[in-house]
Simulated scan of single mutants.
Amino acid sequence: MVHAIQVHTPGGPDVLQWEEVTVPPPGPGEVQVRHTAIGVNFIDVYFRNGLYKAGTSPFVPGNEGAGIVTAVGPGVEGFHEGDRVAYGAALGSYSEIRNAPAAQLVHLPDAIDDRTAAAMMLKGLTARYLVRRTHQIKPGEVILLHAAAGGVGQILTQWAKHLGATVIGTVGSPEKAEMARANGADHVILYREENFVQRVKEITSGKLCDVVYDGIGQATYPASLDCLRPLGLFVSFGNASGPIRDFDLLTLSQKGSLFATRPTLNTFVSKREELVGGANELFEAVLSGAVKIPVHQVFALKDARRAHEELEGRATSGSTLLMP
């Protein structure tokens, strides 16, 4: 008997249903994985509430997980029963057992445990493309990072500091401010109590930031643009408060010929060599100690609804796991 969380109709956390499912043998190009740990991310909320389309109904949400290979489908090379694997961009992880595309899996180093792997694949690969591909952070640059105590935020802060940046982070509480500082943030702004644009101007003596990393969306736009120096880069990589509507390109010219981008992880891992290269760079950063992966919340898989309630209620920090 295999169980999974399924969504029959898009909606709030209450649509996450714990149900018995049938998992067939893996098909061509697929690997069957028994999950040992599953990551929770805001993209899971976007699929659950219908902002992103799953393509099937019902569907199993979740994009990140780690586990053991239990079967290998026709045509698959490089994976064998018993291998430890992980992934960060394959819809369907809220399940005890699943079939996943082999092209989206990577082998885990012995020194990285399953919980750490499930907590870092999506978030770590996201942080990696943000600081190494979307913009290659250079020593001395100043960045503003919204939600600095979140899952991506804590990893990105550490990586950016490792690369020599000055990190200004926004958070929602004094407790999260301490977390951001512990991960290397040079300056922390309590956005509920302070005007973050004014504080950025004060912190930088009016010089503003080279890059703004914004995973919040609606609530921080267009104010994030006012934190950028001329020719600065606005990176909108998430919609935690809702998607940005009516983006005005003319505003970019008026605020200093700014650049803007809306990247997504899938683009940066769409080719096998890019996924493996990115994962190896992430593993190296973690194994060297430059980046630590914080797991602050753990729920049983059947309690995914409660995990989503806390995630959307801004009650979480760092990474959240579901345990089968």
Rank of each mutant, 00 (worst) to 15 (best):
L108R: 03
A89Y: 11
A89W: 09
V85Y: 03
G82A: 08
D114V: 13
D83K: 04
V106S: 07
A119W: 02
V106L: 11
G82Q: 03
Q104M: 15
R84E: 04
A117N: 07
V85M: 01
H80R: 13
A89L: 15
A117C: 10
A102S: 11
E81I: 14
A111N: 12
Y87N: 07
Q104A: 13
G88I: 15
A111T: 14
L91S: 00
P109H: 12
I97D: 03
A100T: 14
R84I: 05
V85C: 05
P101E: 08
S95V: 01
I112Q: 08
G92M: 06
A118T: 01
L105I: 11
G88E: 07
L105G: 06
V85H: 03
D83R: 00
S93C: 03
A86R: 06
I112F: 00
L105E: 09
R84L: 08
I112V: 14
G82T: 06
S93P: 00
R84W: 08
H107R: 09
A119Y: 03
R98V: 13
A118N: 01
V85A: 02
N99L: 09
A90K: 03
A103N: 08
R98H: 05
H80V: 12
A103K: 11
A119C: 08
Q104P: 00
Y94G: 02
D114K: 04
A102N: 04
A102R: 10
H107D: 12
D114F: 07
D110Y: 05
R84C: 11
D83C: 03
E96D: 05
P109R: 10
V106Y: 00
N99E: 06
D114E: 15
A117H: 02
R84D: 05
S95W: 09
G82H: 07
V106C: 14
I112G: 07
H80E: 14
R98M: 14
G88Q: 05
A103H: 00
L105H: 02
D110G: 15
A89I: 15
L91V: 06
A117P: 02
L105C: 09
R84N: 09
N99V: 02
Y87G: 12
S93F: 09
P101G: 09
Y94S: 04
V106T: 10
A118G: 02
V106F: 05
L108H: 06
L108G: 05
S93K: 06
L91N: 01
V106A: 13
H80P: 01
D110R: 11
Q104E: 10
T116I: 07
P101W: 06
R115H: 13
S95T: 01
V106K: 04
S95E: 07
I112W: 00
A119M: 04
G88K: 06
L108K: 08
A111E: 15
Y87C: 14
A86T: 09
D110S: 14
D113R: 07
A89S: 15
I97N: 01
A118D: 01
